[in-house]
Computed example of a mutant assay.
Amino acid sequence: MRGLARSLALTALGAFALGACTPQAGPQPPTAPTGEATEVPGNQSYARDMNAADKAACTTAGGMVQRRGRLGMEQCVHPFADAGKACTDTSQCEGKCVGSAGTTSAIEKVSGQCQPDDRLFGCYSEIRDGKAAYAICVD
């Protein structure tokens, strides 16, 4: 009987731990007019949109202004010339050699693709020496 109670307790603990990893919708920051800073919980402030001068500097440098990440903030994004090229190591790319988030084996040989630009968001594995070095999710 004691073994059954322990087994049920461990099962409940495991379910609780997995539930803690489930993405939850968090509080959304207030919106601000273009270029103005906005207060968010925790006394952090950020500029939601880039100002006109920063946008012009971005496009002059070959970038494009796009909304990225979970907060949808405007960012200057520079595409890489080798975007999408097959690779087996980050040294073969301008950015990182990345595989899908499911590419997690550090033993099996895998290949990936060169990242498309300098603002990599989402879940991916970096490929080094033909193996998945690590997996990460960036919001």
Rank of each mutant, 00 (worst) to 15 (best):
G69N: 09
A47P: 00
P30K: 08
A57S: 11
C21T: 13
G69S: 08
G63R: 03
G69W: 13
G72W: 12
Q44S: 02
C21N: 03
C21H: 07
A25H: 04
C21G: 01
D82K: 12
T60E: 15
N51Q: 09
M73K: 12
Q44H: 08
L18H: 07
G35V: 01
M64P: 00
T60H: 05
N51A: 03
D54K: 06
N51R: 14
V77N: 05
G62E: 05
T59N: 01
A47L: 14
R67S: 05
E39L: 15
V65K: 07
E74D: 10
N51Y: 06
C21A: 08
D49W: 15
A52T: 12
A52Q: 14
M73R: 15
A17H: 05
Y46T: 08
T34Y: 06
L18W: 12
K55P: 04
V40F: 10
E36C: 00
A56W: 05
K55C: 01
P79K: 13
C58V: 06
D49E: 15
A57P: 00
P30G: 05
G72F: 07
A32W: 03
A37R: 15
A53M: 06
Q28C: 00
A52W: 10
A20M: 14
A37F: 13
A56N: 03
G42R: 02
P29L: 05
N43D: 14
P29D: 03
P33K: 11
V65I: 13
P27F: 03
E39Y: 09
A20R: 10
A20D: 02
A52G: 00
S45E: 10
G63E: 05
A25E: 15
A17D: 01
Q66Y: 08
A83C: 08
A53Y: 08
M50R: 15
N43S: 10
A57R: 14
F80V: 06
T59F: 04
G19Y: 10
G69A: 10
T22R: 09
A20V: 10
T22I: 14
P79R: 14
V65M: 09
A25R: 14
T38H: 01
T38N: 02
P27G: 08
P33I: 05
G42P: 01
E74F: 07
D82V: 11
C58M: 02
T34W: 04
A52V: 09
S45M: 10
H78L: 14
G62V: 03
M73Y: 09
D54H: 07
Q75V: 12
A57H: 01
A53K: 11
M64L: 10
S45C: 01
G72L: 04
M50Y: 14
C58K: 04
Q66W: 10
S45K: 12
Q66G: 00
G72S: 06
T22F: 13
